[in-house]
Design a protein around this nucleic acid. Structure first.
Lengths: 201, 201
DNA sequence: ACACCCCCTAAGCGCTTGCTCAGACAGCGG
DNA sequence: CCGCTGTCTGAGCAAGCGCTTAGGGGGTGT
């Protein structure tokens, strides 16, 4: 149920955190626009009015979730990019960890990746900036591999786009009761990523 | 504007078709739940009440769109699966055509692929059945290739899932004003797909 | 000429939405 | 004991929602 609790551990007070996690679940299940503030407050065990003591609008909840989620995802990629080893090892690490996070926290990831359009214009612009950093992190690893002669990639930007698209979409189809767990999917996707960049294994 | 007109050519009368294409655009831009019946009718140049002469509910519009879209996408894959040539040629053809359709008709595809959750329960079940056929079509090609020794695929179901996920997600990020057109993306993805199944080129 | 039918609109109904506000209650420093 | 601050609730407002209804106008068959 509250498998994502650790992500929001530093949100205080307690009621504000409960509202945030309730919003994550509701947004992931039904989508932002189909979720009512009454539903969020109800899941957090509070009256509808309590929401507005901790957040000014329903959109602010989405903005907070999106910000924290993008930061976490970006940190995962940056850690692999700056880690040691060959480009192949770093790409495999990055994809494995990134996919694992999207599978393990698929409710948060679903909101983060598929509800962007509901953000207010200024918030949207800010988040898009973070996404460009995400893109740059993947591209840096792939370009390293090409320069080192480890990878064979005819179209670097296009392949990076496809790589990220593939990883992100895990949040859409992943189910907890599926036959594959987060680690298996991460391993599978790391192998596929190496093939996509033409790594000779 | 009406680049998707040909898909709905056999919808009559004229007003019903205008409402359908208006709904496709509105759903693709804002999402099903954020779209109002007034918005759809307005785009079609009609009063809100006119919608209910041709469709019983707003959900019926989504159901019709989803049905037509899934049928078109499925036919594309089936044609490649049953075509001639090696498994590699058929997989490349399938991915190229499937991706091309998702890019060219990205508004329709966006609704088809990302608004499933808004369908009524019975309609949802029907559409999920069509999606299983889609899955089976891809799997048939990949299994052919493995049996013929053309492909090297450790995890066939997982790789097929990834392949479809990759192709479908094109509808999410594709923009008409981007640097890559539908054909280029189709070619790029066909190459990536062959790499993912371990085809020795 | 007439009645008929299809397509459409103006008006609006009942309900839900995001959000507000006056007041209650608990904890705490003095 | 008081008063203050932070947290929460019950009641409800204005606006917008999906959808309905009564009626009008234009083309067609007779």
């Amino acid at each position: 149920m509250d498998a994502d609790a650790e992500e929001w551990a530093d949100v205080t007070p307690d009621a504000a955190r409960r509202l945030l996690t309730a919003a994550v679940q509701a947004f992931a299940e039904r989508g932002y626009h189909a979720t009512t503030t009454r539903d969020i407050a109800g899941r957090a065990g509070m009256s509808p009015a309590a929401l507005y003591i901790h957040y000014r609008t329903k959109e602010e909840l989405l903005y907070r979730i999106s910000g924290v989620g993008h930061r976490l995802a970006l940190d995962i990629l940056a850690r692999s990019r700056d880690g040691g080893g060959s480009a192949a090892e770093r790409l495999a690490d990055a994809v494995r960890a990134f996919v694992r996070w999207h599978a393990e926290h698929h409710t948060t990831a679903r909101v983060v990746q598929y509800e962007l359009g509901a953000l207010a214009e200024e918030h949207h612009a800010e988040i898009v900036g973070m996404r460009r950093e995400t893109d740059a992190a993947v591209r840096a690893i792939v370009e390293d591999g090409v320069a080192a002669g480890e990878f064979d990639v005819p179209d670097v930007p296009g392949t990076c786009l496809a790589l990220l698209s593939l990883c992100v979409d895990v949040a859409r189809w992943f189910r907890e009761d599926g036959k594959r767990g987060p680690e298996e999917v991460g391993d599978l996707y790391a192998g596929l990523a190496l093939r996509m960049v033409g790594h000779r294994s």
